[in-house]
Deep mutational scan, measured.
Amino acid sequence: DEFHFHWNGRDIRVRGDSEELRRLIEAIKRGELSEEEIERAIEILER
């Protein structure tokens, strides 16, 4: 699976399928994380 979302003017695409990944992306979409937490998560996910 590939998750695709927009954040902070960026087009983010992440491959993978796990419950943890889904929860993280939902939290990002709901605005539950700080900008710094989101940046760090995206860096890890894009590897």
Results as ranks from 00 to 15, higher is better:
residue 21 L to I: 15
residue 8 N to H: 06
residue 32 E to C: 06
residue 17 D to L: 07
residue 7 W to N: 02
residue 7 W to M: 05
residue 13 R to Q: 10
residue 32 E to I: 11
residue 37 E to I: 05
residue 39 E to R: 09
residue 9 G to R: 00
residue 11 D to K: 15
residue 15 R to H: 13
residue 35 E to H: 15
residue 2 E to M: 02
residue 30 R to W: 08
residue 15 R to F: 08
residue 19 E to A: 11
residue 47 R to S: 14
residue 23 R to M: 14
residue 19 E to K: 08
residue 39 E to G: 13
residue 38 I to V: 14
residue 26 E to K: 07
residue 27 A to W: 06
residue 32 E to N: 09
residue 6 H to N: 05
residue 30 R to P: 01
residue 33 L to V: 09
residue 46 E to N: 08
residue 37 E to W: 07
residue 22 R to S: 10
residue 16 G to D: 05
residue 43 E to M: 05
residue 40 R to F: 09
residue 16 G to R: 05
residue 10 R to P: 00
residue 3 F to A: 01
residue 37 E to N: 06
residue 26 E to T: 11
residue 9 G to A: 00
residue 33 L to Q: 05
residue 11 D to H: 13
residue 16 G to M: 04
residue 30 R to D: 07
residue 8 N to W: 00
residue 23 R to H: 14
residue 34 S to R: 08
residue 47 R to P: 10
residue 33 L to C: 04
residue 35 E to C: 07
residue 43 E to C: 08
residue 20 E to R: 05
residue 39 E to T: 14
residue 1 D to M: 04
residue 15 R to Y: 05
residue 39 E to C: 07
residue 46 E to S: 07
residue 45 L to W: 06
residue 5 F to C: 02
residue 30 R to T: 09
residue 27 A to L: 11
residue 10 R to S: 04
residue 4 H to A: 02
residue 39 E to S: 13
residue 40 R to Q: 13
residue 3 F to L: 07
residue 26 E to W: 02
residue 14 V to M: 06
residue 27 A to H: 09
residue 22 R to A: 07
residue 12 I to K: 00
residue 18 S to W: 07
residue 36 E to P: 14
residue 19 E to W: 04
residue 30 R to Y: 09
residue 36 E to R: 13
residue 22 R to D: 05
residue 17 D to A: 10
residue 3 F to D: 05
residue 44 I to F: 15
residue 16 G to Y: 06
residue 40 R to T: 08
residue 26 E to G: 11
residue 32 E to H: 10
residue 1 D to Q: 05
residue 30 R to F: 12
residue 17 D to V: 07
residue 9 G to P: 00
residue 13 R to C: 04
residue 37 E to M: 14
residue 46 E to D: 09
residue 21 L to W: 05
residue 34 S to G: 10
residue 21 L to Y: 06
residue 18 S to P: 09
residue 42 I to M: 06
residue 10 R to Q: 08
residue 32 E to P: 02
residue 44 I to D: 11
residue 39 E to I: 09
residue 30 R to S: 15
residue 29 K to F: 12
residue 6 H to L: 02
residue 35 E to T: 15
residue 20 E to K: 07
residue 38 I to W: 05
residue 47 R to L: 09
residue 34 S to I: 08
residue 16 G to A: 11
residue 31 G to D: 06
residue 20 E to D: 14
residue 9 G to V: 00
residue 14 V to D: 01
residue 44 I to K: 14
residue 45 L to G: 03
residue 28 I to G: 01
residue 6 H to V: 03
residue 28 I to F: 05
residue 35 E to G: 14
residue 17 D to C: 03
residue 30 R to Q: 13
residue 9 G to N: 06
residue 28 I to N: 01
residue 38 I to F: 06
residue 13 R to V: 15
residue 14 V to G: 05
